[in-house]
Design a protein around this nucleic acid. Structure first.
Lengths: 215, 215
DNA sequence: ACTTGTCCTGTCATGCCGTCAGCTTACCGA
DNA sequence: TCGGTAAGCTGACGGCATGACAGGACAAGT
């Protein structure tokens, strides 16, 4: 996809250049998880990476640009999420297992990348098409698979005709993402992490199949 | 609660002062819906309000402080959400109606205040306790009512014992909030606003009662 | 050693931040 | 009517981030 890494002014980046570029990305990523997005300054990132602001601007047009880059890398890894739903059964005990593993994998992925995902979410909500497309890219694999699962059950007459597979799948994915973002919120609400998961799995199972799971 | 409105340096604000203060809040609010949170500058808000940056800092410690103020006002209005669930029935056709009206009211409220809610969400996700408490305050009314509903059905033996009411309620509320934030996202996903609502209502009904609604 | 192209940084103009002293305005009691 | 007092506002300033540029350092090939 990305044939060559290029600097802002069009030069092709070599070995060393790519290294510092990556270092800047790493430092920015770290910065995002330790301080509010709004307060992340180019100069801090540069200092942390042992270089100067000017260098940063050689590789990225601005902070947002760099964030998009990080998010892009993450989206690529996010493809692993597909495996959580693709080709799985939603019937009987296997269905319950599928729901559980989906929830587990999803929360884990989100927790691992929470800082960057927050920013992507904000960008998307603010209407920025780039972030918005990126968010789709990440969620699409899961969403499409879920949507297919609903559609298939529907064709077999196991799910009502007036259910919109895409809407249900989208809502469930949004739920998982939101809960993952606010995991800490649930704790103070008196819900422990361990308790949360099975209840989420239950909701997912109910949403997809319309039935309570057989455990 | 707030006995007197005070400036940062401790003076009590009079008629005129409160007016400019409110004007600044209004302008900030408008600013937030038209440009990314990260790019909202004090000087722009001040200019828009026909005053100077120094005046802004007389009433608010920083942009964040002003945002919290706006959010607080909104949270007060958010109490109206309570009416969407409190004392409603979740049985039979009435249950379906309850679910529909909840979804409707929730989406409407979110759409009306989306700009500020985005920022609150971000702040909460970033771990800022003030935003986080505020988010709770807004969602608590709905969340508690839903939680109670589940607990009640549970005591009647209509819902499984191993369901955690708070977890389910929290997840459903998070889902509604997330879907509301990304309503545009669903459109490009091929799901129309009108189609989305009943499917959300279905999920809510399933989650609360464990059964398909009778329409 | 020399050349070439990559890579980094010092420096600078610009603009926003956040603060302060000081000016203007409104209110109030004598 | 006339100060006196507190509220209300702003010009100006040091400080820092931004973003652009030109030039120096460096690695690799010849």
């Amino acid at each position: 996809m990305t044939g060559q890494v290029r600097t802002v002014d069009g030069r092709v980046a070599g070995r060393r250049g790519q290294a510092t570029r990556q270092k800047l990305l790493d430092c920015l990523s770290e910065m995002l998880s330790s301080s509010p997005y709004r307060d992340v300054k180019v100069i801090d990132v540069a200092r942390k990476a042992g270089t100067s602001p000017a260098t940063f601007y050689q590789y990225f047009p601005d902070v947002e640009g760099a964030v998009l880059e990080i998010a892009e890398q993450m989206a690529a890894e996010g493809a692993e999420l597909t495996g959580l739903v693709q080709g799985r059964s939603w019937v009987g005990k296997a269905g319950w297992q599928t729901a559980q593993e989906l929830v587990d994998g999803f929360l884990e992925f989100w927790r691992k990348n929470d800082a960057i995902l927050r920013v992507v979410d904000l960008g998307a909500a603010e209407g920025d098409k780039r972030f918005y497309k990126l968010r789709m890219k990440i969620l699409n694999s899961v969403n499409n698979s879920l949507s297919d699962a609903v559609a298939e059950l529907q064709s077999k007459g196991k799910v009502d005709k007036d259910v919109n597979p895409a809407a249900v799948a989208g809502a469930l994915v949004a739920m998982l993402a939101a809960v993952a973002s606010h995991q800490k919120g649930f704790q103070t609400w008196g819900v422990k992490q361990a308790e949360l998961k099975p209840n989420l799995a239950l909701l997912v199972h109910l949403g997809i199949t319309g039935k309570k799971p057989t455990k």
